[in-house]
Every structure is written in C-alpha cells, then in structure tokens.
Amino acid sequence: MAKVKGDIVVDIERCKGCEVCIDACPTHTIAMSEDVNGKGYHYMQNVHDACTGCTNCAIVCPDGVITVYRVKI
C-alpha cells in the first residue's frame, strides 16, 4: 500500500479561529493554538505529524488560509 505524508502551511494572520477545520481532520493532526494572531484569534495549526495531506481542512476553510502539501513515500 502506497503511503503518503502530508503537511500544511497556515496563513496565520488570516485565520479567524472558527474551528470548522478541526473536526474535518481525519487524523486529528490539527488543533487551535494557545497564542493569538494579530487580530486576537486563536489560529489552527499542525500539532503532530500524522497529516496525510488529505486537504479536508483546506477545502472546508471559509477563508482559504490553508495550503496543503503531500508526498508519496
């Protein structure tokens, strides 16, 4: 079975902290930050390396702040 590994880059300053992406992640890789961004929102972030690059978080994000990367291994 081909394995994949993914990662995300979050445009932190544009994240509004709605948390809609959190439930969308099948591997529970993302969580809200303790810190806040310039607008005072907790932003979403990758908290461990189980990301498969499935893009779920990105496509459900209303503000389009997530870029998703994936490599086959």
Binding site: K5, G6, D7, G53, T55, A58, T67, V68, R70
Partner: peptide, 9 residues
Amino acid sequence: IIKDENIVY
C-alpha cells in the same frame, strides 16, 4: 514536504 511541487491544495 513543503515544496511547491508537492502542493495538493
């Protein structure tokens, strides 16, 4: 992983 050629979304 985070390289332009690996962008999927």
